[in-house]
Design a protein around this nucleic acid. Structure first.
Lengths: 192, 192
DNA sequence: TCGATTGTCTAGCAGTGCTAGGATCAAGTC
DNA sequence: GACTTGATCCTAGCACTGCTAGACAATCGA
């Protein structure tokens, strides 16, 4: 009983170690550097151990993505709850979102750029992803405007933020005046 | 003289063949399937021939991206020039952009998702990329609104379109009501 | 016709994700 | 305490990747 429990606990610990190490390595050197060999070496186990926890590299990326979704939801909620009024909430949301993407590029990629084998916009979407969207919806829904579906509005606003985040980081948009673009987005899209 | 010219022409032809084949293969089976071996086999030459034209796979992706940028610029201009009035032009632009992204996913990836080794938002940005941005600017600049920098407005609008394009295609946004999101974007962002 | 140059291919390197099969070690039983 | 059993882990290897060195053949200028 207790032996089995200890083993399960150790296994869960190791799984967390794998995810945390993959994330760390990805943030340090990019996802290309996260090879199964290097990852195995860092956690001080052999390669096949990874496959006893995850189906493959894709699933490890997925695990990092879920972790990121939970963090981002928390970051967004923290920012919006500290703001007064719908307008300020939306601005805070946008800044928190872009800030998270900038500070955690590898995690952001795991969530939205790479294939982590996760279902999106679907009934069997993992809870953290649904909740992250819900966090956006909470503040964006109230500025959608009359007759505009809150969900669709949130999706559109989110897409705009996503575009800014990815194009900026990929060097497609100059880093200057980033703040200005955010203001424009909030000014125009959010109905006060 | 004439012999040398013929050789140069043949070389240029082969280079076009490489790019066209890479693009075709990428659209058929995704960029992951575009391996140097498979590409070499399709053009009926050995692998090293590819490296006598391009520095590596990345540069081939870059070549496809440039081709795509020129096409997209043309598509956008064709759509906007057929529309009457600023508002209609912006709608046409948005639809043309998203339509191109949807019909040519691999080319779109080469342009904006993958690393093609191209410089963006920079003085030594290749001409087709600058021109594609110019094509957007032509119609978007006129609806930026007073006191709003046309370039920054175009960047922001473009980012929103890019977000819609990528999130939709990656399955992050449900394909339904896509048209509705475009309308919302145009309605709110463009000042009539 | 002969050397030189250009063009092309074969073969190979180091790396990738992933897995089959054997070794090892701990748990439970007599 | 010795033994079997079963889980756990690692070594070694597969088929693939991007890329390149060196051998070979075709073509050119003299």
């Amino acid at each position: 009983m207790s032996v089995q429990e200890r083993k399960q606990r150790e296994r869960a610990d190791r799984e967390r170690l794998i995810v945390a190490t993959a994330r760390e390595l990805a943030e340090q050197q990019g996802w290309d550097a996260v090879t199964t060999r290097r990852l195995a070496e860092r956690i001080e186990y052999s390669q096949p151990v990874l496959y006893s926890h995850f189906r493959g590299k894709r699933e490890i990326i997925g695990a990092v993505a879920l972790e990121g979704a939970a963090e981002m939801a928390a970051a967004v909620r923290a920012a919006t709850s500290a703001a007064d009024g719908p307008r300020a909430r939306v601005t805070a949301l946008a800044r928190a979102y872009l800030d998270y993407a900038e500070r955690n590029p590898a995690v952001y990629d795991a969530m939205f750029q790479l294939d982590g084998g996760l279902a999106f916009a679907h009934e069997d979407t993992p809870e953290p992803l649904k909740d992250a969207f819900a966090a956006l919806l909470e503040s964006l829904g109230e500025v959608a405007g009359d007759g505009v579906h809150p969900g669709l509005f949130t999706e559109t606003f989110w897409a705009a933020l996503h575009g800014l985040a990815t194009l900026t980081r990929a060097g497609r948009l100059p880093p200057e005046h980033a703040e200005w673009r955010v203001e424009l987005l909030v000014d125009r899209l959010a109905l006060v």
